[in-house]
Simulated scan of single mutants.
Amino acid sequence: MTFHDQVIAILPKLRVQALSLTRNRAAAEDLVQDAVCNALAAQNSFIPGTNFSAWMHRILRNRFISDLRKRRETTDIDDVPASSFASPATHEDNLALKDLSMALSRLPADQREALVMVVIQGMSYEALAEATDCAVGTAKSRVFRARRQLEAWMSGDLPANDKLRIKVKALRDAMDARRRAGQSSDDLMLS
């Protein structure tokens, strides 16, 4: 398989990784495009017979980190309006997906990235370790800790002082009360 064929074959996995890093479809596409450009420019440095997937994932991750360093833009979660975290849900499945999405976004970036690469993309721990420049044990630990933390958050097994959990519970209770009273709860999502 030629170098270009390998690049084309790995694009879907790069898109998934980029989306897990950026959490924005347009930014993810830009990141993939930049990573592919970097890979094409560094094509001669790739050693045939080595793990092409790990090499590409590392290029994408390094490009993401470089872009972050250039921007250095941060936002405190308390400064973001609640409406950006929730939208009117009509089914319990939508609520569960939102809970999962919120829980995933709360994971540390290294754990989220490791979980997505292993669980969603099916990458081996060895390939993950190579792509993220860490030991295999560290890669396994990141996935384990991410799974354990998600399980705790999704089962409601959280500390009593967890501000986000308290806010979400209050919002759900208010929505349920309005539904029982036959009132719309759309305005709650806007506040």
Results as ranks from 00 to 15, higher is better:
131 A>I: 06
152 A>G: 06
126 E>V: 12
115 L>I: 04
154 M>G: 10
152 A>L: 15
125 Y>W: 09
99 D>S: 11
88 P>E: 14
78 D>K: 08
147 R>T: 15
147 R>P: 00
69 R>I: 09
72 R>I: 04
82 A>R: 12
91 H>A: 05
146 A>Q: 07
154 M>W: 02
113 E>L: 05
82 A>H: 08
86 A>D: 01
120 I>V: 13
147 R>V: 07
107 L>N: 03
88 P>K: 15
141 S>C: 05
73 E>D: 11
141 S>F: 03
135 A>N: 10
141 S>M: 12
136 V>P: 02
137 G>C: 01
80 V>N: 01
106 R>E: 08
109 A>G: 04
150 L>H: 07
154 M>N: 09
102 M>K: 03
86 A>W: 12
96 A>D: 12
84 S>E: 09
127 A>R: 03
82 A>E: 09
83 S>R: 14
84 S>T: 14
70 K>N: 10
143 V>M: 01
133 D>I: 10
93 D>S: 12
153 W>T: 03
116 V>W: 04
103 A>T: 11
92 E>P: 01
111 Q>L: 03
138 T>C: 06
96 A>C: 04
88 P>Y: 01
139 A>C: 08
112 R>E: 10
76 D>V: 07
107 L>M: 05
124 S>R: 01
158 L>W: 06
82 A>F: 07
149 Q>S: 13
86 A>V: 14
142 R>V: 01
88 P>A: 15
72 R>N: 12
80 V>H: 02
88 P>Q: 13
95 L>H: 04
83 S>P: 00
115 L>F: 15
132 T>I: 01
98 K>S: 11
115 L>K: 02
97 L>F: 11
154 M>T: 09
104 L>G: 07
116 V>P: 00
77 I>K: 02
135 A>G: 11
122 G>V: 08
92 E>I: 05
91 H>N: 08
72 R>D: 13
76 D>R: 14
146 A>E: 04
91 H>G: 06
123 M>Q: 11
85 F>G: 07
128 L>N: 01
85 F>Q: 01
92 E>H: 13
138 T>D: 07
79 D>P: 00
136 V>R: 13
143 V>L: 06
117 M>V: 06
82 A>Q: 08
94 N>A: 14
121 Q>A: 12
115 L>T: 00
113 E>N: 12
132 T>E: 04
132 T>V: 06
94 N>H: 09
127 A>T: 12
74 T>C: 08
78 D>E: 13
79 D>W: 02
137 G>E: 15
117 M>F: 03
79 D>C: 00
95 L>N: 12
70 K>E: 10
